[in-house]
Amino acid sequence: MDLSVHRLRMLRELHRRGTVTAAAAALHYTASAVSQQLAQLERDVGAKLFERLGRRVQLTELGLLLTAHAEEILGAVERATLALEEAQESVSVRLTAGVWASVASGLLPTALNSLAAEHPGIEVRTRELAPEETADAVRDGSLDFSFVLDYTDVPTPWDNGLERAAVAVERLYAAVPAATVPTSAVTLLELADQPWILASPRSHFGRAVRVACQRSGFEPTINHEVEEQSTAMAMVSAGLGITLVSDLGLTLRPPGVDIVTLTTPVMRTVSVAYRRTAARRPALQLVIHAVRAAAAELGLGASETVPG
């Protein structure tokens, strides 16, 4: 019997997600591709591994048995990778990272250029995801590491199988149409009567801003709900409302937008999340060091660990 690690990872994801569509989305494949690979896995094993119950999929007893062994096999593959990296005098490895727009534009160019100059054997590939999705992708093994966010008043639920290393601390600013706010600093409450452009409450950013406004004594009037800071600022530039933007997000600011400091800062920490089993990977630690150095150059340096 020849068991494919690739197909075992799909089986594990099917068990976790409950549907082929959800498993495919988590692994960034089409549902038909995952179905074909799982069907081939059943042929490899010579037994039925799952059965459909309406829209969901339930593993058979043999499927559950194989999934339990898949966890061990995939863990052993990761440990073997680590052992090989530690045994090599020069680090040569490819890592895949989960990012979002402001990290990709504000931190990564400097960090990856520095890494390429000092450690040319390390190749980092990126995949853009919503900040809320990146940690799950690391846990599931489809990413080697990802960037994650923690807001001062809205801590992120954490998976005990993951660790995180803080790389930057950002503050949020008010982004307003040019010449509409006459001062260089305001309280959030002074912005209460403005129309807002804000991410949905499903996002960490959207929840954090709403909580900050509520603690300042008001509910923001949200006229436009958009997820990307760059989109929100484009709408601010058109005079459609105000939003909040992070330090790294300032690199995406279009003309026609003024940046106003909040007198009571709203802060967030950017961290790198990775599986506990990968903590000793030399390449990963070198990437974290490069990203921290890039953040420090921007004045956004962070302490090295995040509690929790």
Rank of each mutant, 00 (worst) to 15 (best):
L108T: 10
P109S: 12
N113W: 06
A97F: 09
R127K: 07
A135G: 07
L95V: 05
V103R: 03
Y151W: 14
R139M: 11
L149R: 05
V93M: 12
S114I: 03
S142Y: 10
R127Q: 01
E128R: 01
G141W: 07
Y151R: 04
P120M: 07
N113K: 14
V154C: 08
P131N: 06
S146W: 01
A97D: 00
P131I: 00
L95R: 11
R125A: 07
T134N: 06
V93N: 08
A135W: 01
W100Y: 15
S142E: 12
V103W: 13
E128S: 10
A101D: 14
D153S: 05
T152P: 02
R125E: 04
A97I: 00
E132Q: 12
D153H: 11
G98K: 02
S92M: 11
W100R: 09
L115E: 11
L129A: 01
L112E: 03
D153E: 15
W100H: 15
T110R: 13
E128C: 03
L115T: 06
V93I: 12
A130M: 07
T96H: 04
A116P: 08
E123K: 15
E133R: 13
R139E: 15
V99K: 00
G98D: 01
T126V: 11
A104I: 02
A137F: 05
T134Q: 11
A116K: 15
L107G: 02
F147V: 08
P109R: 07
F145V: 04
L149G: 02
F145Q: 00
R94Y: 10
S146P: 08
W100D: 03
L107Y: 08
P131G: 04
L108C: 09
A104H: 15
D153C: 03
A130V: 15
R139N: 11
P120N: 06
L149Q: 07
A116W: 00
F145L: 13
L129S: 03
S102F: 08
L107R: 15
V124G: 06
A130H: 13
A116Y: 04
E123S: 05
L95P: 03
V148S: 06
G98A: 05
W100S: 03
L115I: 10
V99D: 10
D144Y: 00
A137T: 10
L108S: 13
V124L: 13
P120L: 09
L112W: 02
V99P: 11
E133L: 15
V138H: 09
T110V: 03
S92F: 14
L143W: 02
R94W: 10
D144G: 03
A116L: 03
V93S: 05
L95N: 02
P109V: 15
V93W: 02
